[in-house]
Design a protein around this nucleic acid. Structure first.
Length: 544
RNA sequence: GGUCCCGUAGCUCAGUAGGAUAGAGCACAAGUUUCCUAAACUUGGGGUCGCAGGUUCGAUUCCUGCCGGGAUCACCA
């Protein structure tokens, strides 16, 4: 809010000076508060192309700035040519009075023409339970979706899955083997590449109790039953787990529909007609080398089955045909190799692959007391997301999964996450919210008393107001950069500024007008924390 | 070997469309409550921003090379 105001003033000054400047003017918050509230480096940026000394240029710019002396307290040149701006407390509080009017909608951006955005995440096949990597994927995807909704766009949350093919028949065979071990022979052979998780036995037990030994012959149909029940069971678990995280997707796109609807054939025909496909060794290859990649790749195997690339390309083509302005894919680092193929394939079909944004997140490791936790207690394999939720709760899981940049490895510290105390960063934010609620509950409403925002001149009050004024900028930046942790970091700063204000400035039992103004500040802080936590999918408790 | 990600305080990490004295949390040390939630606040120590070059007024940030850690390189998905 403050930035936008200042940008305008600088823009006008530069226009007035008749200067041609390419790109935006950059206004930043100086690290050192003594340098003012905001700082602009135009003078240094353009000194060279104008053949001037930066400090001289800065002076000229300042001479051309037109502003209200009631709003800006100080404009000065510092260091090599920074122009530092200090606002008057009056201006800060008047900005605050404006946002205090908006309340519920503060931070929401309304776009004149909302963009249609598709965000695909989780997308686990129904062959097992969700584990930690899926958890990070799910929370990143959902939070980014929230951010884009908040910034005024129309968002579709999508899940892409495949319930056909090798993996699934493998699931059926694995369940069948466990089933036979239960009803007949404990030595019944388990497939080499079968799924070893304990959940397979859980499913087999259900089958055994429901159907007795009626599948003992092991016909094709019996295997099908195992597969079908396995799929249903896994999906139910996955949906339940996501539900716990308050994640609900709008579209579940089945890869199989690409085949039944003839989309795969359409894409193959189009590649052929563009002379981008050729047969070799009985397989169909796509000329990726002509699309700027290293090697040609098989898209249809000699067995007649497509490789994963073909449906992936066809799927993205479908998303384009549905008319999205932005298509976001959230993948784990293990999928990185497939990205260039899909992008090149879609481009070859004539779509603008710049509209696809692939978010690749790095892996999650779990540590406890400084040591890496490798095995899950129940499954003996990697930790499931449900187990983690049981241990630390939804709020902590959601917060921990987005509190780091998505491109860095995430160390999930179980000891810290389990800690129900001030050490845990989630509680810091929630505590601020609960504390404010408690104060508001205790306050007596003073009727018909005008709120005098200009009384909020204390340093701690001014600092808190300035933080609150940043909220919309942060939401926009977090969405644009696809970095939810910016918001998490920001909320910590807001909470911190609030706690300081709380210690410095007594709210209740002060003069009526002071109390009213401070109460308003507390309420607005609560609103920002609540809205921010809402975007992060984390609860804002009234009591702790 | 090719490609991608990471390397910043004892630990976990912010910070990079190039900016002023590099930050936070945890850990460690010392303090704050007759008073609105002490899950809070205040103060302190702690750094060759992996290494070496380059680009320029200025580099943790951009470029190149190297070192270290991770991921990935199928007619698996």
């Amino acid at each position: 809010m403050l930035k936008i105001y200042l940008k305008e003033i600088f823009n006008n000054a530069i226009l007035k000076m008749g200067l041609e400047i390419s790109g935006d003017i950059i206004i930043d918050i100086p690290k050192n508060p003594e340098h003012g509230d905001l700082s602009c480096n135009v003078a240094m940026q353009f000194a060279k192309q104008l053949g001037m000394n930066p400090r001289q240029l800065a002076e000229k710019v300042i001479a051309n700035l037109e502003y209200d002396f009631q709003f800006i307290e100080r404009v000065d040149i510092a260091g090599p040519g920074f122009i530092n701006i200090k606002f008057t407390p009056k201006f800060i509080t008047s900005c605050f009075s404006q946002i205090a009017e908006i309340r519920d909608d503060y931070g929401k951006i309304k776009l004149e023409s909302p963009k249609k955005i598709n965000i695909e995440y989780v997308s686990a096949n129904p062959t097992g339970l969700l584990h930690l990597g899926h958890g990070r994927n799910a929370v990143i995807g959902d939070t980014v979706a929230n951010l884009y909704e908040w910034t005024g766009n129309e968002v579709t949350r999508e899940y892409y899955f495949n319930n056909a093919g090798n993996q699934m028949s493998n699931l059926g065979k694995s369940i069948y083997a466990r089933y036979m071990q239960i009803i007949k022979d404990t030595d019944y052979p388990f497939p080499d590449d079968g799924y070893h998780g304990l959940y397979i036995t859980d499913i087999a037990k259900v089958l055994a109790s429901e159907l007795g030994d009626s599948l003992a012959l092991g016909t094709e149909d019996d295997l099908k039953i195992c597969r079908k029940r396995g799929e249903e069971w896994c999906f139910e678990q996955i949906i339940n787990t996501l539900e716990r995280l308050k994640i609900r997707q709008d579209v579940f796109f089945n890869e199989d529909s690409l085949y039944t609807d003839g989309k795969i054939e359409e894409v193959v025909a189009e590649f052929k007609s563009k002379d981008l496909a050729y047969e070799k060794d009985g397989a169909l290859w796509l000329k990726f080398t002509e699309l700027g990649l290293e090697n040609d790749r098989v898209i249809v195997k000699s067995t007649g089955e497509p490789t994963y690339r073909l449906p992936d390309i066809a799927y993205h083509r479908e998303k384009f045909l549905r008319g999205y302005d932005l298509i976001v894919d959230v993948f784990g680092a293990d999928h990185i190799a497939t990205v260039p193929d899909v992008l090149a394939g879609v481009k070859a079909l004539g779509f603008d692959n710049e509209k696809i944004k692939v978010l690749i997140h790095q892996f999650v490791t779990l540590t406890e007391n400084g040591e890496q936790v490798k095995m899950s207690k129940r499954t003996g394999k990697s930790y499931t997301l449900d187990e983690l939720l049981d241990e630390v709760g939804e709020d902590v899981v959601r917060f921990f999964f987005i509190m780091r940049g998505i491109s860095t490895h995430l160390e999930f510290d179980l000891s810290l996450a389990k800690e129900q105390s001030e050490k845990n960063p989630v509680f810091y934010l929630q505590y601020a919210h609960a504390r404010i609620t408690s104060i508001i509950d205790k306050a007596e409403v003073i009727a018909d008393c005008e709120i005098r925002y200009e009384l909020l001149t204390h340093e701690a009050e001014q600092k808190l107001i300035k933080e609150l004024l940043r909220f919309p900028e942060i939401v926009i930046a977090a969405a644009a950069k696809f970095e939810p942790q910016l918001l998490a970091e920001y909320l910590r700063e807001v909470s911190s500024a609030f706690h300081v204000f709380y210690h410095e400035c007594r709210i209740l039992n002060t003069a009526n007008d002071i109390m009213n103004a401070r109460l308003e500040l507390a309420k607005m802080t609560k609103q920002v924390i609540k809205n921010g936590l809402k975007i992060l999918g984390i609860s804002a408790p009234d009591r702790m």
